[in-house]
Design a protein around this nucleic acid. Structure first.
Lengths: 112, 112
DNA sequence: ACAGTCGTGAACGATTGGGTTAACTATTAC
DNA sequence: GTAATAGTTAACCCAATCGTTCACGACTGT
């Protein structure tokens, strides 16, 4: 059973791709703009965008007035899934602390 | 400027390490228990735990009654930071959609 | 038709990352 | 004391990944 966040985390692990995500927070950008903004070559960026597409983090559409350019835009679903995964992990802390205290108290410190 | 989440995401990108995190949600475990649970060798797990330690995702402590064993436990801070990063990205969607609609409307479809 | 632009794909090289086995240290048990 | 255990470190191998350059197909403008 592979979690739905595993592709997302792998995609976001790369600093360039994370930069793309942060860029696309503002507004949709075309591929070449993204490459320029991240100071990477277009072939390299093309592959990064492919990864982001396959994991569903971004969505591509065609610009109506110029069929050569592809405009990229964020998709919310993977982020929502990632957030709920993190929240799930975080949810256990109070219990975790209780368990730790309970464990620590039943042990006596060893002598120095 | 490197974000505080970049180490976190890199650490969580590996399935084994993510498995460790999910295991540690329940309670603290000792290193060898973790290795057994993930079905990986102890040296391999040792290195994974080192990564998790350096990024602050886990915390190591010594077992009082046996100084050989190291018990690992989650730390909340990086998860909180990751969650707030995701929330920041998510926060822009309504604006994003508005921007998209505005953009789309000012363009007329090209002729077939 | 021709030149220029947008983006992708392919082939190469370099780097990184994870796994393995084999020492090695520190601690505990006998 | 010696033997056994917990965990890490070191040296090596293999696979995946990222960037580059070059070539290509699709489209646009003139």
């Amino acid at each position: 059973m592979k979690s739905s966040v595993d592709g997302t985390l792998a995609a976001l692990a790369d600093p360039t791709r994370r930069g793309v995500v942060e860029l696309l927070r503002k507004r949709p950008y075309r591929a070449s703009e993204i490459a320029d903004a991240m100071a990477t070559s277009r072939p390299a960026m093309s592959r990064h965008l492919r990864v982001l597409r396959k994991t569903g983090l971004v969505e591509e559409r065609e610009l109506p007035e110029d069929a050569r350019v592809r405009v990229y835009q964020l998709r919310q679903k993977p982020f929502a899934e990632l957030r709920s995964w993190v929240e799930e992990v975080e949810a256990l802390w109070t219990d975790q602390l209780q368990a730790f205290k309970a464990h620590a108290e039943q042990r006596r410190p060893r002598r120095p």
